[in-house]
Simulated scan of single mutants.
Amino acid sequence: MRGLWTVLAGALALAACAPQDGPQPAVTPTSEAAGYSRDMSAADRAACEQSGGTVQRRGRMGMEQCVHRFADAGKTCSDTSQCEGKCVASAGAVSPDKPGVGQCQADDKLYGCYAELRDGKAPAAICVD
């Protein structure tokens, strides 16, 4: 009897995941739905520009952000300690067990897939959206 209950519970769980008939409401989480605006306030925009930054839309949600460029952007590196930001390479371009080189990140808002180099090696890659 216990086996029957297990099978029945599994079937119910799968049924809950099955597509439903008829039109479904579009569920698209947005920053506005979460109570955030995609645009910076005038005061934040002014503070950004006063600090030497530029307002740019970044990330998957396209929110305005204050971006500061690094002076050593694009410089060849093999370790983050050689950069104002991180020493990065394209994910897959470097190996965790072989020495490699990268470039100092361009600015303080790093998005996309990349591997951070430490001692010439990239133990892992990450994707930031």
Rank of each mutant, 00 (worst) to 15 (best):
residue 85 G to D: 01
residue 5 W to D: 11
residue 109 K to N: 14
residue 81 S to N: 11
residue 40 M to F: 06
residue 13 A to M: 08
residue 50 Q to N: 12
residue 67 V to T: 11
residue 79 D to R: 01
residue 68 H to Y: 13
residue 22 G to V: 01
residue 116 E to H: 02
residue 58 R to T: 13
residue 71 A to T: 12
residue 51 S to W: 04
residue 117 L to G: 05
residue 3 G to S: 13
residue 18 A to S: 06
residue 30 T to D: 00
residue 46 A to F: 06
residue 43 A to Y: 09
residue 48 C to L: 07
residue 64 E to V: 04
residue 45 R to T: 14
residue 37 S to H: 09
residue 91 A to K: 05
residue 57 R to D: 12
residue 49 E to Y: 10
residue 125 A to H: 07
residue 56 Q to K: 15
residue 5 W to G: 04
residue 61 M to N: 10
residue 54 T to Y: 10
residue 29 P to F: 02
residue 101 V to A: 15
residue 113 C to I: 08
residue 2 R to C: 01
residue 125 A to N: 07
residue 41 S to R: 05
residue 77 C to Q: 03
residue 53 G to I: 06
residue 36 Y to I: 00
residue 114 Y to A: 06
residue 42 A to C: 03
residue 65 Q to A: 15
residue 102 G to R: 00
residue 46 A to H: 09
residue 105 Q to Y: 04
residue 8 L to W: 10
residue 14 L to D: 03
residue 20 Q to W: 06
residue 34 A to T: 01
residue 125 A to K: 10
residue 32 E to V: 04
residue 87 C to G: 02
residue 118 R to K: 14
residue 122 A to P: 01
residue 16 A to Y: 10
residue 81 S to I: 02
residue 109 K to L: 10
residue 108 D to P: 03
residue 39 D to R: 13
residue 75 K to R: 15
residue 19 P to Y: 00
residue 57 R to C: 11
residue 83 C to I: 02
residue 1 M to W: 12
residue 28 T to E: 13
residue 69 R to N: 13
residue 39 D to P: 00
residue 45 R to M: 05
residue 127 C to E: 06
residue 77 C to G: 06
residue 41 S to H: 04
residue 11 A to M: 12
residue 73 A to Q: 09
residue 93 A to M: 03
residue 6 T to V: 13
residue 31 S to W: 14
residue 120 G to W: 01
residue 32 E to T: 06
residue 49 E to Q: 13
residue 49 E to M: 07
residue 114 Y to K: 08
residue 101 V to N: 15
residue 69 R to L: 09
residue 96 P to Y: 01
residue 19 P to A: 03
residue 128 V to H: 12
residue 118 R to S: 12
residue 62 G to Q: 15
residue 6 T to L: 14
residue 86 K to V: 06
residue 56 Q to M: 12
residue 75 K to V: 06
residue 105 Q to L: 00
residue 129 D to A: 07
residue 62 G to E: 14
residue 77 C to W: 00
residue 100 G to L: 06
residue 55 V to T: 11
